[in-house]
Design a protein around this nucleic acid. Structure first.
Ligand code: SF4
Ligand code: SF4
Lengths: 149, 149
DNA sequence: GTATATTAAGACAAAATACTCTTAAATCAT
DNA sequence: ATGATTTAAGAGTATTTTGTCTTAATATAC
């Protein structure tokens, strides 16, 4: 499991928001219905994104959430950090102190490159790019109940 | 978090076992002391490795555990699978069905390559290679209490 | 055989994560 | 103002993961 479920839900919801071009508010109920996940749970996840000012929310009728800035300016990584709270990093599981710098084991460089790759991957791709795939996609494409991992 | 703690403990213990060249049994108590983790918890983890025939165990005085085969023949991956129970895989978090093959999003190839890299990484390195780093290392190198991730 | 050392097994507890529900606050429509 | 809609907040529950403890089984040494 690379990302928590909360994080995955937040990403999926964000992509739905990016897909909407009206820039109006969309209710969390609509999002949770389309994603097949709990409304209340998603609400909590999106609250984090709102507090991080990735989303903007509005209460009352015609309220909901929307992206606080253009989808081109929101990275995958921002969302992960906002929800999972920490900088995403894959540490070496062997955890030896004073390791690596002096006498790296056969995996040391690979762990490092793995991290760089992940950082680069999620840091450079934006919601705009991710949702574009959706917008162009077949209309019957839907989010599944399964979460991936 | 890429690997569970159980898995990390199992890996660390296995490396200690590989470091020992006498090929005699080592008590789990010794391992847990050196790794600074709970004896009982490590026992349960190592039982999985024993059932998978990666380790061999022996009860009673002079008993303990040892590698069931040469360290050169035990891969990182075998241990992960034995303990975490599943094939290690980093799925795309967006989880769209009928995705990818037809119209991959900007990350699709990268997720795939990430997986290949991880599979290759943990599938090709053996305990012998990992412990070699330890054997040659400074004698005061010790496992830390922290787990990495 | 009796005591001792050691893993095996499983019940139990604690913590982290995932999820649900209730109530409050804000906003809008009438 | 009143009532409906919708997010915010937080209490509460469930599940999974992590960790502890107790007892049983197996082997050795005397
Ligand atoms: S050398 Fe690097 S990868 Fe290898 S055990 Fe040390 S920190 Fe981990
Ligand atoms: S195309 Fe993108 S969203 Fe679809 S499975 Fe591949 S990485 Fe995931």
């Amino acid at each position: 499991m690379l990302l928590s479920k909360s994080c995955i839900y937040g990403l999926r919801a964000s992509i739905l928001l990016a897909k909407d071009e009206s820039n109006g508010f969309i209710t969390i109920r609509d999002l949770s219905d389309e994603l097949n996940i709990s409304f209340h749970f998603l609400t909590k996840v999106l609250q984090k994104l709102t507090r991080s000012e990735i989303l903007e929310s509005f209460k009352g009728p015609n309220g909901g959430v929307k992206l606080a800035k253009p989808a081109e300016q929101v990275t995958f990584k921002e969302i992960v950090i906002s929800i999972d709270g920490r900088f995403y990093k894959v540490d070496c599981p062997l955890g030896l102190p004073a390791c690596g710098e002096l006498a790296p084991c056969p995996l040391h460089d690979q762990w490092e490159e793995l991290n760089n790759r992940i950082q680069n991957m999620i840091g450079s791709v934006t919601l705009a790019e991710l949702s574009d795939r959706q917008k162009r996609g077949k209309p019957n494409l839907q989010f599944s109940a399964q979460t991936g991992s």
